[in-house]
Design a protein around this nucleic acid. Structure first.
Lengths: 246, 246
DNA sequence: TCGCGAGATTTGTCAGGACATTCTGACCTG
DNA sequence: CAGGTCAGAATGTCCTGACAAATCTCGCGA
């Protein structure tokens, strides 16, 4: 059963046509106009209906396949994925995640200063050992409860960060606003027991389980732009990751 | 400085040309023939050199950009990324990961039997509540130490699994061997304290921090093929995830 | 009735061309 | 000397056209 979806195209818009198509198909899926399992029209028919060429339609569909919303099979067709697969993980910060889920994040800046780096951090950031980098320590709250202690190291000169900025917005948002284009992040996720200091900050008992995350983020050019070492209260937070095999 | 790389094409091979090109560029990067930061020839020149069309070259390059090996910038060119970005995460099981890092995994099967599902599991697997599914419980060792307790639920009829199979190989490998094509996995990673039973199995104290993972894996068609609830000894294991923004 | 093969359907791969957009760097101007 | 402007170079988008490969369906024959 091929669903009949209406797609408006604006050829005068700077938004690429394939992207307009992809967005509107995705929206139809979110709205429920395209139910899981339903088949899309075939590429040639779709192209014909919209007055576009097949490569453009293919590009739109490929984009959605990469995001995990659609499945293609040769000789069969293109179908909407069953099950509510969540959006693929993006390079977002905890702050963005919390705000999106309506949890009213708040931040207390505990430290914000240039500081000479340890050898280990220098290695991951790719700077000279002993050079100064911006050290940042924050306590993050959600819904009034302490949620995480965040430690970050950033190369100097990337962005002018003030404590006021950091209390109102997330680090990633600020970096993006400063023109930093983050592209790849490597995360190591583990767990351990809280030590005394952490327990006090997070309002937990010593020994309480914490989720830990080490993350290094690289930009466009593969230069490290941020390294973070964070601990989360396991009782209040968990991470979600979606993997898509191509 | 545009590196001079030799690429052989086999037009009689069933392997797509774009893939042949991509593989050989990736190999040149791994070998070090293409050093980080070096620019590739532009697309038109490359296409000309190899006797291919520009779309084919673009497809090859796009493939490597998606894998995080190359970076493209309009008006500038295509460069090899700086820094050693790890391979993107794949749909592998703990067993594969361990064997790849040479840790000699071993498995003890604690349970393997059809069992009626709870309402919750039925919902994530997309089967009727109360229907029978294959229940699987395993204790995984690495280097002689207990490492994780693995619980899995699988729809019946996917594969004929025996305890002997499961002791010698990983679940994912067995499923793949049975023709199951896994494509998307959704993971939720958290942490909590070990209870008495877990502590005993894993040779830890009660209350020791454990890394927890809930995973649901879907196939080609978006049908759930596996749901797992696993706990790992945080002192011995952590998860690594690489994110690439497109 | 059941199995198998031919044909139809659909996506996968590849070619070649055209124009738009963006970035860099050199040049010109005040 | 500083700043803006413009040309060149590279990727981004979009088009048309063609054939290959995988899959499903239906009809035919045993």
């Amino acid at each position: 059963m091929t669903a009949n979806l209406a797609i408006d195209l604006d050829r005068s818009s700077p938004v690429p046509l394939y992207f307009q198509v992809a967005e509107q198909i995705a929206e139809a899926i979110r709205r429920g106009d395209l139910v899981p399992g339903s088949r899309l029209d075939n590429e040639i028919l779709l192209a014909d209906k919209l007055g576009l060429s097949r490569p453009t339609i293919r590009q739109a569909i490929q984009y959605l396949v990469d995001k995990g919303l659609l499945v293609r099979k040769r000789g069969v067709g293109t179908q909407v994925v069953h099950g509510q697969v969540k959006r693929s993980v993006e390079l977002t910060s905890l702050y963005d995640d919390l705000r999106r889920s309506g949890q009213e994040p708040a931040t207390q800046v505990l430290a914000l200063e240039p500081r000479p780096v340890s050898e280990e951090i220098a290695a991951v950031l790719g700077v000279e050992p002993g050079a100064e980098v911006l050290y940042l320590e924050r306590l993050r709250f959600a819904a009034g409860e302490p949620l995480a202690v965040l430690h970050n190291w950033l190369p100097l000169g990337l962005a002018q960060l003030t404590a006021a900025d950091l209390e109102g917005r997330g680090l990633y948002e600020l970096l993006r606003g400063a023109g930093v284009r983050m592209r790849v992040a490597n995360q190591r996720i583990g767990a351990r027991a809280a030590n005394q200091a952490e327990a006090k900050l997070l309002d937990e008992r010593r020994g309480a389980p914490l989720l830990t995350m080490l993350r290094t983020t690289y930009d466009d050019q593969g230069r490290a732009v941020e390294h973070g070492s964070h601990v989360y209260r396991a009782s209040l937070y968990s991470l979600e990751v979606t993997l898509i095999e191509r």
